[in-house]
Design a protein around this nucleic acid. Structure first.
Lengths: 232, 232
DNA sequence: CAGGCAAAAAGTGCATGCACTTGCCTTTGG
DNA sequence: CCAAAGGCAAGTGCATGCACTTTTTGCCTG
């Protein structure tokens, strides 16, 4: 299908970066998988030049690993590094929550709470798909609410690198309700401007997700799911 | 071929990335300055291809800004973004200090304290140059002591982006002694394993540096220094 | 003399080609 | 039969060239 054109905007390289990053982040391309320049070029119907640039940028942000003269592979995340990312995530979210509690505008607070309450419905219905959407939005609001672009960027970047490993979490039974309750603690703390409580709640929230993920995602995400296999 | 090696290791692109990043981080290339591909290629005696790849990677990590079809410039840091980076830095250092207090090995603690005590001499002598060296090492130890590679990486990256703006700080009279005392509070807290105190001390330390820097570095670092101007 | 327009100049984006490196596989001597 | 050597195919790294976009320049017009 010569997959591109889906993402408008930008140069060919930008599109390639987004396309490949997306495949990595969603787990479609698996850690350690070889990224052959010629194949990718053919796959996206461009020359090797933009592919090379894209791989370079992806390696700069840590999504792929490049061995000089030996090609690129999807970055392999060791168990240890994974743990360090989850721990960092907990701390980053804690910071965002703390700052949010202190800095969110009235509008931000109101819409955070409103969305959060709306998501309760998804829990009742057991609509995982939809809840996940609310969940992502919820966290985004927290990051933006911190009113600190750099923290925002670090947090978003870290979150996306963890995406393949968070995938399995909602397979745990009762996870939806548990997640919602944890969100509720965070929201409540933020609404009353209790920074310390919001930070702690956010940290705990991530820690729990982390532990849940660790159970499933050994080193290779999507051990079970996935399949399409990315070659050709 | 001629103008390269100097920095051993890696491909031409890697060398270019390091070379340009270094010039940006040290302030030799100033925010907003145009990065012409042809000129850089000539300057380093390579073709435009590796230059383009290098610029792409630098833009991926935020050091340069690339406008499609309109060339690349050294990333411009707004006053607001700068503040957000300093604030992030304070939080990141706080995390490192907290973790260090909890996790540093006996060896790490001992050598941290030893180095810190040794640096007292530099303060007495007023050896700014040498103190700065100790200072850098001190912070590095904190980052490593956290035993979390991801936090380590985020912190180092943020620190390097702030480098041009921290430059002016030691121009403040009495800054050396003040800095040492702040370090001392951190070290003391770490030595007795007081994570909360270490975190707070580290955060305060950065905040003070941040305020000091803000005085000098308006938006453009090195307003006074610099000069060589990077063209030709 | 300012404003506008068109053509040239400058500069970026990508394709292509070739040299070099690496890994593998065959060959050959022990 | 194994080990080292040599050669081959695959694949990466960089240079070069051309098309296309943006910016500049110079000329014309009101």
């Amino acid at each position: 299908m010569s997959g591109r054109r889906l993402v408008r905007s930008g140069t060919t390289v930008d599109q390639m970066v987004r396309a490949i990053a997306d495949r990595i982040v969603t787990g479609y391309l698996r850690p350690g998988e070889k990224l052959d320049e010629a194949s990718l070029a053919a796959r996206f119907d461009v020359s090797r030049t933009p592919v090379r640039e894209a791989l370079g940028q992806l390696s700069a942000i840590g999504l792929v690993e490049r061995r000089p003269n030996r090609g690129a592979i999807v970055a392999v995340v060791t168990q240890e590094h994974l743990a360090s990312m989850f721990e960092s995530m907990a701390e980053l979210e804690a910071i965002c929550a703390r700052f949010s509690a202190e800095r969110m505008t009235g509008t931000e607070r109101r819409s955070l709470e409103k969305e959060h309450q709306a998501s309760a419905r998804m829990v009742q219905l057991g609509a995982e798909e939809d809840y996940e959407h609310f969940n992502t939005e919820f966290h985004s609001r927290l990051y933006r609410g911190a009113h600190n672009t750099h923290i925002h960027d670090l947090t978003v970047a870290t979150r996306s690198r963890l995406a393949p490993f968070r995938r399995a979490q909602f397979m745990l039974p009762g996870r939806l309700a548990k997640s919602w309750q944890e969100h509720d603690v965070i929201v409540t703390a933020i609404m009353r401007g209790d920074a310390a409580a919001a930070g702690k709640a956010a940290r705990d929230h991530v820690s729990i997700v982390s532990e849940a993920s660790a159970v499933f995602a050994a080193v290779d995400p999507m051990e079970a799911t996935l399949s399409l296999s990315a070659r050709r």
